[in-house]
Nucleic acid binder design. Sequence first.
DNA 1: CGCATCATGTAAGCTGTTACATGATTAT
DNA 2: ATAATCATGTAACAGCTTACATGATGCG
Lengths: 176, 176
Amino acid sequence: MSLRHAVLGLLVQRPSTGYELAKLFDRSLMTAWHARHSQIYPELTKLESRGFVEVASEGPRSSRTWRITREGREELRAWLVEKEPSRIQRNESAVRLFFAGMLAPGDRQVACERDLAYVNEQIRMLEETREQVLAATPPQYFLPTIELGLRVNAVYRDWLQEQIDQAEHEAGEIHD
Amino acid sequence: MSLRHAVLGLLVQRPSTGYELAKLFDRSLMTAWHARHSQIYPELTKLESRGFVEVASEGPRSSRTWRITREGREELRAWLVEKEPSRIQRNESAVRLFFAGMLAPGDRQVACERDLAYVNEQIRMLEETREQVLAATPPQYFLPTIELGLRVNAVYRDWLQEQIDQAEHEAGEIHD
DNA sequence: CGCATCATGTAAGCTGTTACATGATTAT
DNA sequence: ATAATCATGTAACAGCTTACATGATGCG
């Protein structure tokens, strides 16, 4: 179960409330795993009952800051190193791209342009995050994954632009 | 719901049995969406009740070959072009890479080498598929997505090799 | 005072996994 | 014969989404 280990991983970075974890899932982890607060709060309770997390402090508005325990770190390490990864992926955008080639050129262009706008926005956000991470001393452990995200998104950007150019070309041919 | 539209998309390619669709999910669509036969058979029944697919023929072993209807094609097109895509992704391997930077160099190297072996195998399979698709006349609509898969996997391969080299270097420093 | 944000939680319903269950056909 | 593959289906359970529900704190 990735949710459990994603929560443990985020708590290694910094003790956090459930609310903060929900924001981190939306920001740092968005392209890897997604989780809502309605899943995160019950998961924290489960992780506590297994001894993997504990309440570090209580704050205003009945907030609780959770921290990972030694057992939690061991569980995370075992998952990362010893457990055979599941290669199953679920990516709606990839399903769309797979079938985009069946569309008429005009429709295909519309679909690819929408994706290109999204990819460019992702690149912008990753560049922004990279600046912040580089400014921290020492740079945080996930700097290489930001670099990876930038490279993968550059591939998507170039490929989408090629598909758009190709679709424009095909649309032109029809009217010749 | 991507499962529904992935089934419709696969049926545009070629009328298929549920069993064949399950194999296609494992092969062509593996990096985009995953589905088991226990989900595919009930989904075909639902799609039939909505008029999006119909039985094209019945064969041996109580097999039924399904084909997409005109209404099904319209539904698929509307989904691809008009519906705002969900950008939610679930990718356990990406979660692992995100947290790999927290591991000790030796552990990180083990994790990255396992992924590199997988990525190299993916590249081998994509190259094989590309040859088959290029041999077909005319080349099938999903040729560009195979090219995209190859480019993305090349990025992963190079990045993983860099992480492995870096981890080896760090491991060396410790013993200096 | 009112709005945005912080903060947590539960319930109903849908989606997806694993396991169970059955049987036909083909190849060795 | 018997093993592998083809072929379909259901049930129990786990995971995830959407909606409901509540209230505190900080800012303008």
